[in-house]
Design a protein around this nucleic acid. Structure first.
Lengths: 224, 224
DNA sequence: ACCTGAACACCGTTCAAGT
DNA sequence: ACCTGAACACCGTTCAAGT
């Protein structure tokens, strides 16, 4: 995020590597080997330089990651035609952000960043807030509504991505089936009842259903 | 989570350290220095042993973390009297899980684990699913509803915890104010309009409001 | 101003051996 | 069965110096 001032006139030694080159290389490394494969040392090597040269263009690894997320958002979150109906516009804008982020598995480690991830996403935030206002919410409630939608969206992505990673990793996922097989129907009747279907139900993509429920609930406004 | 079988009769050398001792020590380290301070080496040192001794009781660091979360859930998620009204029971059960996890800042790194975090939490999951069924949802929709609530809850905790950490860390948080100050009202009118209030609105705890909206929306059931 | 080399202070995990 | 010592293959970051 921190786009640090305009490029100076540079009255010193000419730069061999640029911030852009660093980010491009970092993006390629992450695409190939995931975020775990991105180390300052490897990045330096692939850019044909030394670790310390990187530190001259980027404060530290966390800034690099944020820069990377920003770059990703800028190139995938393209504004598109949204529905005219306000409620549908809220759903579509949130869905667009969701889909862009969900397609990017390494995002999780960085995603947990803050409430707004990138200047490129601001337009979508605007659509959501504006849609809620047009549906009749006061501005303050609309901002709170946007946050609720962001919590829901970020949570869905983080939980699903981690579950997927764990499933691929090893047999830890089977532990859940184990637990569900041993449920005491007297104590946890509903879970026992749903136990065989649980895995299938969990695998279903119900992001949009939940999103619509949330938006409906926000607009019903049964409070304050 | 993996409670690996009952303690064997141990026909070998008597154990000097136990899994319980390891977890107790790990909990203390995390309480003092956060999850970053918990390293296998330090844990070994504080338990009066060597790194490799730990690996004899725990598969790897990730398992240790999951064990730690389980331990935390078991000691803080005590069943309590919930409201008789079904809808209120759903809200209260979700709120109880939320509050327990939110009080535990190190949880984020582990939380992103899976859909059910711990056997101790199952009772709360049961309350939520059952409450939704009693409100008239079919079981499948109730399970999906529980998942939506979990996404929202996990997202709220993760996003808030990370924002708090970042705020404490350094000046990166001020970047947002910077962006909001420079908003173009012609392009992003609502955000510009809300810009001075944004920080205050974001600071407000609206978890329960969003939760109620979500539950209302789920129960309104405007969809097949 | 930009880059290099060498070092600091760590990591998680594995291997081979001891009791 | 449980534990140790030593090593492997790394990390992010800092310091002091070079051009």
């Amino acid at each position: 995020m921190p786009q640090p001032s305009a490029p100076r006139k540079a009255p010193g030694r000419p730069a061999r590597i640029s911030r852009e080159e660093i980010i491009d290389t970092a993006r390629r490394i992450v695409a190939e080997g995931g975020v775990k494969g991105l180390t300052m040392r490897r990045l330096a090597a692939e850019v044909g330089s030394t670790p310390m040269a990187i530190y001259h263009h980027v404060r530290d690894k966390e800034e690099l990651l944020v820069l990377l997320l920003d770059d990703y958002a800028a190139r995938t979150l393209r504004r598109s035609r949204l529905p005219a109906d306000s409620r549908e516009r809220v759903v579509a804008a949130a869905g667009a952000v969701h889909d862009a982020l969900a397609a990017c598995p390494w995002i999780v480690e960085v995603l947990t960043a803050d409430d707004l991830m990138s200047t490129s996403a601001l337009w979508f935030v605007e659509q959501i807030v504006d849609g809620l206002v047009e549906c009749g919410l006061p501005l303050d409630r609309a901002v709170h509504g946007y946050r609720a939608i962001w919590y829901y969206t970020a949570g869905e992505i983080v939980v699903r991505a981690t579950a997927a990673r764990r499933r691929a990793d090893d047999d830890r996922a089977t532990y859940r089936e184990h637990v569900f097989a041993d449920l005491d129907p007297a104590e946890l009747p509903r879970l026992a009842q749903a136990s065989e279907r649980w895995a299938a139900l969990t695998a279903e993509d119900t992001y949009e259903d939940g999103l619509r429920a949330l938006v409906d609930g926000l607009l019903a406004g049964r409070r304050g």
